[in-house]
Nucleic acid binder design. Structure first.
Length: 546
DNA sequence: TGGAATGAAAT
DNA sequence: ATTTCATTCCA
């Protein structure tokens, strides 16, 4: 029995255990969608999920395309056979899709906000970035999580049959290596951490850790580069002075206001107020689409989630990506018949149902159902998607296959983004989009049933083409072949795919991911927007079943 | 080649 | 529950 490698393809992986396909299972399975209603509206995002243009790593919203284009630190296109971490990567190796943190980390590293002199060790950098990550305001973290969703979707599209097989690699490795201690090594981080170290080395670790925390804090305060370096040096000098004078035990915990107390003794040198807040915290509103116009990035009052150094709330309890996960227990209730769906428009009979999504109060009739009340086969109903919150409240969505061939593009399109008549609509016709580089085009509120979505309605997606944007063209969103292929190259997934790139639209209010395919080779010219390509293969959308 | 982080998904 | 592996680079 040959060792199984992770990237092995399993063409017909039809165990069909519980009828609920795993993340990267065979796409020819049921289509069910479960989303949560109780999540904060997702933030718009309009950059390539892994665009190498991340010079504003911490603030993708304010990344101007021009900067982007000029950005010198695009890594050279990496070849696929690049070996990462000792794993053999032949041409057929398919790596896992990156998660939000990994994307963030990559971007952070690329951005070189932390000078080499401050920290060049990637292990330590990981530590710092991890700490920093924890301080990210929700909105900003959602950006990365959304990017991770995109990366996932793309990964699924490219490798529909790929499955994550942990251990497969290790197994092969074990066979090859056969080192005596290697097999049982079982390096768990905690055992490593707690297992070793006398008091001396523990102390050392602690100071190292504090340094990481300090750097993270400084980053939170907006210090980068040389500024960060000098601030850190100040701090370190302060430390040594304290140690010198007071034998170290004295001001130990006052050095960094890490425990959330605002009365740090070094408050002057190291202000505890976060003057630096992510501008992207505000880009939740559409302006992110305009974000490419937003040159200074400072014009948004940072109102929402302020950064805090010691997050103690539940902001990080539930990752956004988790919210898009398939509900383990709750099946779909059939809210809308395909017929209903057929007639759906901005004022359709679906409205009331959709209303349930938005206001699932106890007063509203049974938009709530308990998992046990529904037979599992309703998962298979492709015409019904489900919003479900953590309480098990479910609400419907519209799926493409329930719409018939005439309206494939209407899936999950409460804004009627693609237009009422043609399944292929032009974005330029859509009143609900905020147009890039056209601030004069004021977004229009869009009514869907009883609910009026305030403008801006939709925010989008992957990358924009810098040169086009800087040319001041009038289109809502665009794509960037270059970024896209960079992305591919970065990931090593690069089959330099011709054709279409998945685009994720996020409905801010319903938090429903909407995926469209966008032609890569479309021409973006003055006055004409790229057309959405709406070949909605069910297999593709199955990928958005979780 | 282990180490660092977080998170997804498998055992 | 616990483990692997996504990224990244260096010693």
């Amino acid at each position: 029995m040959p060792a199984i490698r992770e990237h092995d393809i399993y063409p017909n992986d039809v165990e069909d255990d519980d009828g609920m396909p795993p993340l990267v299972d065979n796409p020819n399975t049921s289509m069910s969608f479960t989303f949560f209603t109780d999540m904060t509206p997702i933030t718009a995002f309009s950059v390539d999920p892994t665009a190498l243009c991340e010079n504003a790593w911490d603030n993708p919203a304010s990344t101007s395309p021009a900067e982007c284009a000029d950005s010198p630190d695009y890594p050279a296109v990496q070849t696929i056979d690049r070996v990462s971490h000792g794993k053999k990567r032949d041409a057929s190796y398919i790596p896992r899709p990156p998660n939000a943190f990994i994307l963030f980390r990559s971007s952070f590293i690329r951005s070189q906000q932390v000078p080499e002199k401050v920290e060049g060790n990637h292990s330590t950098l990981s530590k710092i970035i991890g700490k920093y990550w924890k301080t990210l305001p929700r909105e900003e973290r959602e950006v990365w999580e959304a990017k991770a969703l995109v990366a996932q979707a793309e990964h699924r599209k490219r490798y529909p049959d790929w499955r994550f097989r942990p251990g497969a690699n290790a197994l092969a490795k074990l066979k090859v290596k056969d080192g005596p201690g290697t097999a049982n090594r079982r390096r768990s981080t905690q055992s490593t951490k707690k297992g070793r170290g006398n008091a001396e080395s523990k102390k050392k670790n602690k100071s190292k850790d504090e340094r990481c925390s300090m750097i993270a804090d400084l980053l939170v305060e907006g210090k980068t580069g040389a500024e960060l370096e000098s601030a850190l040096r100040n701090w370190e000098n302060g430390i040594s002075r304290v140690v010198e004078v007071g034998k170290g035990a004295v001001g130990r915990e006052g050095e960094r206001d890490h425990e959330g107390g605002d009365e740090g003794n070094l408050g002057e040198a190291f202000p505890t107020t976060n003057h630096f807040q992510m501008e992207s915290a505000q880009f939740s509103q559409d302006l992110f689409l305009l974000g490419h116009v937003n040159t200074d990035g400072r014009d948004h009052p940072a109102t929402s989630q302020p950064r805090c150094k010691t997050p103690h709330d539940d902001r990080f309890k539930v990752p956004l990506t988790a919210m898009f996960k398939r509900s383990l227990s709750a099946p779909a209730r059939r809210f809308a018949s395909p017929a209903d769906v057929q007639g759906h428009s901005r004022n359709s009979s679906l409205a009331s149902n959709f209303n349930d999504v938005l206001s699932d109060t106890a007063s509203s009739p049974p938009s709530v159902c308990t998992p046990s009340t529904f037979p599992s086969e309703q998962y298979e109903d492709p015409s019904v998607a489900v919003y479900g919150d953590s309480m098990g409240h479910l609400s419907p969505l519209v799926l493409p296959s329930g719409l018939g061939d005439d309206y494939p593009a209407r899936w999950n399109d409460p804004y009627n983004l693609l237009g009422a008549q043609s399944p292929v609509g032009s974005l330029s016709d859509c009143p609900s989009l905020t147009y890039g580089h056209s601030p004069s085009v004021s977004p229009v509120d869009v009514s869907f049933g009883n609910y009026t979505f305030p403008s801006p309605t939709l925010a989008a997606l992957i990358a924009t083409k810098p040169e086009n944007i800087s040319a001041g063209l009038d289109y809502p969103v665009s794509y960037d072949t270059q970024c896209y292929s960079s992305y591919s190259a970065l990931k090593g997934w690069a089959d330099d795919q011709e054709g279409f790139v998945p685009q994720v639209f996020v409905n801010q209010h319903a938090s429903a991911p909407m995926i469209y395919e966008w032609p890569l080779d479309d021409t973006i010219g003055a006055g004409h927007a790229p057309q959405l390509h709406n070949t909605f293969e069910s297999s593709y959308f199955t990928n958005f079943e979780f």
